[in-house]
Design a binder for these strands. Sequence first.
DNA 1: ACCTGAACACCGTTCAAGT
DNA 2: ACCTGAACACCGTTCAAGT
Lengths: 178, 178
Amino acid sequence: MRRLSRELGRSAMAPYWYVSDKRELLDLVARKLMSKVELPDPDSGPWEDRLRQVVTGIDAMLHDHPGIATVMLERMLIVDRRLMNGIMDILQSAGFEGPEVFLSYATIHTYLFGRYQVVEIDTPDPSTVNPSELEDTLAKLVPHLKNLRGRDFFNFGIDTIIEGLKAQLANKRKKRRG
Amino acid sequence: MRRLSRELGRSAMAPYWYVSDKRELLDLVARKLMSKVELPDPDSGPWEDRLRQVVTGIDAMLHDHPGIATVMLERMLIVDRRLMNGIMDILQSAGFEGPEVFLSYATIHTYLFGRYQVVEIDTPDPSTVNPSELEDTLAKLVPHLKNLRGRDFFNFGIDTIIEGLKAQLANKRKKRRG
DNA sequence: ACCTGAACACCGTTCAAGT
DNA sequence: ACCTGAACACCGTTCAAGT
């Protein structure tokens, strides 16, 4: 708040005329950014494509504004349920029912959440990690790191989760038949 | 730091005799906690069981000390690579090679990371969410929430990721044959 | 060797006051 | 209606000093 008002050339208390506290301000920013993420039309394709589309949209937005990631994902339920509902609709159309919708939603949400705290672990700068110091598994693998980009981690993660969700649906059908 | 010294009945600067700054102190705490998580014996069973075991161990530890989660997962690479290496060994024994080991490791790491920022979204108190206010998908599903515990979310998430990783391995084999 | 005190540069926020 | 100033209760940290 103090830095904001400083940058705007106002006194420390100026923002409090517009907003009752810091959280309200961050909620407004989160709401604004969330509203820009598009939900694909329910008829636009298979559920896994639609899911990938929303999640990619959210990820792109968080990538452009990483500072808001924590707030946004913490306050999605309170600030704007549109995206949550959209994702849950997709999961329902995939075949998840009742509590499963929450479980599968939470898996995606948690993964997305984790992405914006991890940057330097997902992509540790190979030059920072001194290979001669490491006599371990990581050491032998470090050379492969230079070919990986943030996008590769994202794609692999989302693919893994989508494949996992498909398997959960398949297991469900198997149980029902058995 | 100030609160710590206050609770120890020392002056604000007392901790700086032992530690050069706040991060060094948190690194020491993270290292201590990480060292308590056991890595299963490589011959103790199939990779998915071993993976579930480490991840459950890490999760249990973070559950008991949620304050250290962010530090620990951010500093795993720097502070103590034992757990990272252990997980990567498991993933290699599963059949992942080269860059895939990083990609699959990152998926797990990211998921684990997300868990400790999300508590109140994974388990929103049903009484906090006023159903009459919600005319949406979430509203219809809220009643199911009361039967879900944190453990259910964890199990579903890990199962989904493990199933997803199995699918990634299967796709790899398919490609190789094709 | 272990600790303190004063100081600096920050936070978010309350409350009364100014135009 | 919109903003300021002083103050409170916090932070992490530097630096010189004390026993």
